[in-house]
Design a protein around this nucleic acid. Structure first.
Length: 154
DNA sequence: GCCAACGTTGGC
DNA sequence: GCCAACGTTGGC
């Protein structure tokens, strides 16, 4: 089983939105970066676990744990002219963008803030993609060791 | 294939 | 709102 970290801006779609979704499940649409897409399209498996990370907000950090419940399939919002993620170059026959379905397993009682994670950047969390200099990928892998360590911070 | 211009991300 | 980092675009 693989582990992941997936970013979302809480003002757009936060952990509370997921908690309120039917079956606490949503399709993770809107990823428009090839590397992040590749992770979703090719590497995510049903049963994989992912941290829900709030980005671009007052207190960036991990706020929940999700489970992948459906593997990669075409992101239909890329074909929606009225969607922010509309991509006129995406081809119905050969979709460019993919998404997965994720289900909220639990919302953390306390967020694990980016500040907190950074405290371990040079030791236990050395190499965590989220903490790499300049990293902007919205979907990144998390090693099993990092995953376990972060959960203990919760 | 190079690379300047441009747009986006996301922490601060 | 600022701006560093990075990805993409497109002219050459």
């Amino acid at each position: 089983m693989n582990h992941w970290l997936m970013k979302s801006e809480p003002e757009v779609f936060g952990v509370d939105d997921l908690a309120k979704s039917p079956r606490r499940t949503t399709h993770w649409n809107g990823v428009r970066n090839y590397q992040a897409r590749n992770f979703m399209r090719s590497d995510m498996r049903v049963g994989d676990l992912a941290f829900f990370y709030h980005s671009n907000c007052d207190e960036p950090g991990i706020v929940g744990v999700m489970k992948v419940v459906k593997t990669g399939y075409p992101d239909h919002t890329a074909f929606d002219r009225n969607d922010d993620g509309f991509d006129p170059d995406s081809d119905l026959e050969q979709p460019r963008w993919y998404m997965v379905d994720v289900q909220l397993q639990r919302k953390l009682a306390q967020p694990i803030t980016l500040v907190k994670l950074r405290e371990h950047a040079n030791r236990a969390l050395k190499g965590l993609a989220l903490l790499q200099r300049g990293n902007r990928l919205s979907v990144t892998p998390v090693s099993a060791a990092h995953w376990d360590f972060i959960l203990e911070l919760a």
